[in-house]
């Protein structure tokens, strides 16, 4: 028994120090490509930490979004950056003088001590909301407590979240979109690889969406896996047709938010409360919301990766 406890502590210690070390290397390795690769490994290590903290839902989201899609976005941006900038600029160029940086280190060390103490003195019993969540789980329409919080107890946050995603797309499009990524000749391996992987990803997304109500998974995880399938498709050279890039695309980007708003208005009319689902319908409403939110999340993430504006004349 004791051996296991020691092993667990050793594992946590290695993981914690590994996270700090990878973060530090990410932030000051001279080569930006290396920094991004280190950041992706940092994300994968974070996913492990989430598993250790009994947070499988976050582990899935972190692996798919935090490490996977953010990594893809960063690598694509770096490829584009190298076509527009002179690469002579040192990537480690410091801002401010040595004195300012020294002052900053002193300040942050002080904050570290204060913050550490503030965390340390927290009582080890907690008055969190798990009791309230458990007590109401049966009438929430989902058996996975995280899904119940995201889609029911705090569904309003998730509704606004859909607009955050939409705003990122609007932001990039209003900038006129990004220049196309420097195309590489299609790599046969990648092509075969994606032909095999894309169906697997779609199946995985469907599975995550389906079990999300009862087990770890749900709209965000399914959406990001589906989005990753989209990214693979884009990487293998596929481009949506011009017609698809207009109205159908805009509808797909907003369908999650639209569903939230329609359900919001209906519940306001019939239950007098925003997003108050009748108990008998709650399960079905959550499935509906999750399915359409998955579509929006997946398309948004793929479009953020593509980065191009839908308007042909916008390429300025």
């Amino acid at each position: 028994m004791d051996v296991i406890v020691v092993l667990e502590w050793a594992f946590d210690a290695v993981l914690g120090l590994g996270l700090l070390w990878l973060a530090w290397r990410t932030l000051n390795s001279p080569d930006l490509f290396k920094a991004i690769v280190l950041f992706i490994s940092f994300g994968l290590l974070m996913a492990l930490a989430w598993v250790r903290l009994n947070a499988p839902d976050i582990a899935l989201a972190e692996a798919a979004i935090g490490a996977g899609l953010t990594g893809a976005l960063l690598l694509a941006a770096l490829a584009r950056l190298r076509t527009t900038t002179d690469n002579t600029m040192p990537a480690q160029l410091p801002a401010g003088s040595w004195f300012q940086r020294g002052l900053l280190i002193v300040l942050l060390s002080g904050s570290a001590a204060g913050l550490g103490y503030a965390v340390w003195i927290l009582p080890s019993h907690t008055s969190g909301l798990s009791m309230a969540v458990t007590a109401n789980l049966d009438v929430s329409g989902a058996r996975n407590p995280v899904t119940a919080v995201l889609l029911n107890f705090r569904g309003y946050d998730t509704m606004l979240e859909m607009i955050v995603l939409l705003l990122a797309v609007l932001g990039i499009w209003s900038l006129g979109g990004l220049p196309p990524r420097p195309e590489r000749p299609a790599v046969a391996v990648l092509d075969t690889f994606s032909r095999f992987l894309i169906p697997v990803f779609i199946l995985a997304a469907a599975y995550l969406l389906w079990v999300g109500a009862d087990a770890p998974g749900g709209a965000f995880q399914a959406g990001s896996v589906l989005g990753a399938a989209g990214v693979l498709l884009l990487l293998s050279g596929w481009r949506p047709g011009v017609r698809l890039m207009q109205w159908p695309l805009r509808l797909a980007l907003t369908i999650g938010a639209i569903t939230f708003i329609i359900l919001g208005v209906l519940t306001l009319l019939y239950e007098q409360q925003l997003l108050a689902y009748p108990v008998a319908q709650a399960g079905r409403m959550i499935i509906l919301l999750e399915s359409l939110a998955t579509v929006s999340i997946a398309v948004t993430l793929a479009i953020l990766f593509l980065g191009e504006s839908p308007d042909p004349e916008e390429k300025k």
Binding site: V133, G155, Y156, L274
Partner: peptide
């Protein structure tokens, strides 16, 4: 919102 009431 949702009819739950704070803090849940």
């Amino acid at each position: 919102v949702g009819g739950w009431g704070a803090p849940l």
